[in-house]
Design a protein around this nucleic acid. Structure first.
Lengths: 306, 306
DNA sequence: CTAGCTTACGGGCCGCGTAATCATC
DNA sequence: GATGATTACGCGGCCCGTAAGCTAG
């Protein structure tokens, strides 16, 4: 397949043309350009013939722009500005001051934590476009590999320091139980996981994107052989909080990844165990040499999310 | 004074870079460009060093865009499009299909006649920007000379065929008297200028822009030694028509330059004389080689304004 | 050994500068 | 003659192509 763009001129032609069009005098334009006048004449002539358009009227009374010349002058100036801008943009991009940063996390659970980091990053690098994506943790690896996501947030230990990925631990949280203030146990300071066999236990999401919550909840309960009713699912965090506030059930939550909701109290758990700790990590491809990601991670480390 | 735009690259560099960035393979890109691979390598290297930005990561696993490269790729594509567009626009301009056409006339008196011509011109040359200006006939000559107005409309015989200007007669009209339907003479088919010594005679404008009407009216009346009350002035055509409709006076008008107004009748004049004929001409600078103007005049001639 | 990019080197095109030519005032 | 633009012409840079070099699988 041949190439799309034909080269019918070079930037030199535009530069020379602008100079002549602005001075309307070949000799002075040549001086400004530090070239000899004949060279300038020749280039203008070449430009005109390459587009088959008369750009300048040269007669005894002087040199004047034709209408086509006037039109091209505006365009040419604009193009030269674009050229300069392109260089600046590339430099910005190299310095991590410009670009597109695609960040993905496990739904609002992790992304809602980032508001501080995001605002500080925006302050430091205002020209960087940041996009947030809610994707499932299963997709995260492949998206990171493909490069369509540059930085991910994950609770998955498999997606931490490996030969392929780098990561930094962002925050950890210990599982607690969230329930309505009207729940019988809401007055206790400490509750046991065994106390909720009569309650519905809510999880966010049903399959795919949000099913991390279900997996963690199920694993914690079955690890301890705790009887419980079948898990109930709600689509998102807000819905779950509404259900909890209405005392329709309880939920195993990781307080730092949630906001404070009135009508809902969060109680520590009597039981012990490492699996009650959950770690949120930022993950990115090790061989992705991205100043954007590096800058973002620097700020991320600097921000106290705890 | 040195020149504004520095040349740190040529379009060739952009073209080559786009090809490499799209194929991510120097050899295939070189094929598409019909150059040898080393030449391509060298140009990309030159481009990178000229802006001090790494655009492509070349390692054993292949060639990939850096972030800066991605940014530049978008810009480069855009610039190449602009280049092609610039040529098309210049060609359009040369063919009179694009540009700015500045038209001036003597207020709404003449410009309101042009709606047919304007709409046909717009149909034929949609990319041409037409601006209408209301300027006095005194300014018209200087504006035409300066080139800030390309085509003018004038009743002034001095602004017709001269060594400096070309013109074409657009329409002529014979003076009549406009008066209210309630005017005592409104029932007559023919009236004499001498019948109105008791009526106020209205003219549009007081000084400057619109005073052509006053000059013509005054000249016609004094030429015939007709007694009349001092002329009364109104700012514009609409106001005058309102005054006439209210039977506050009469006016010497040139029907083709006015619209039909209810409550106002227009009567032929008994008197004879060449000075009762007024000609509207389109005028432009003779040595202005403007396809836009030529095209416009062609359509103007073609449209029946009578 | 192959694939893929870079370095080395010689040739040719072209853009430049000097000088001459043309045109108008 | 002065100003200003266009040919004429030889030089030099640079872009290119061929060939060799380098690295990784």
């Amino acid at each position: 397949m041949p190439f799309r763009y034909q080269l019918w001129m070079e930037l030199r032609h535009l530069k020379y043309f602008i100079a002549v069009a602005e001075t309307l005098n070949f000799r002075r334009a040549a001086e400004r350009l530090n070239v000899a006048q004949p060279a300038l004449s020749r280039q203008i002539k070449d430009l005109e013939s390459s587009i088959s358009v008369k750009l300048l009227d040269r007669d005894t009374s002087g040199t004047r722009l034709t209408e086509a010349g006037g039109v091209l002058l505006e365009e040419a100036r604009d193009i030269m500005e674009r050229i300069d801008m392109a260089r600046e943009m590339a430099r910005d991009a190299q310095a991590g001051r410009r670009g597109h940063l695609q960040i993905a996390g496990l739904g609002s659970m992790s992304l809602s934590l980032l508001s501080d980091t995001l605002s500080r990053f925006r302050l430091a690098y205002p020209k960087v476009d940041v996009s947030l994506h809610d994707i499932g943790y299963r997709d995260l690896m492949s998206e990171l590999r493909a490069g369509s996501v540059h930085l991910g947030f994950s609770f998955d230990p498999n997606l931490r320091e490996t030969r392929e990925f780098k990561s930094v631990q962002v925050v950890k949280s210990r599982a607690r139980i969230a329930m309505s203030v009207q729940h019988p146990l809401a007055k206790q300071d400490l509750v046991s996981l065994k106390d909720f066999d009569d309650d519905h236990i809510f999880c966010i999401g049903k399959a795919g994107m949000y099913d991390l919550h279900r997996r963690v909840t199920q694993s914690i309960l079955s690890e301890r052989n705790i009887y419980h009713k079948p898990l109930k699912f709600v689509a998102n965090l807000e819905l779950m909080m509404t259900m909890l506030a209405g005392n329709y059930g309880v939920s195993l939550v990781f307080p730092r990844f949630f906001g404070d909701i009135s009508q809902v109290v969060i109680k520590p758990i009597l039981e012990d165990g490492d699996d009650l700790e959950i770690f949120l990590s930022a993950v990115w491809r090790r061989n992705l040499q991205s100043t954007l990601v590096n800058n973002f991670v620097e700020i991320l480390k600097d921000v106290d999310l705890g």
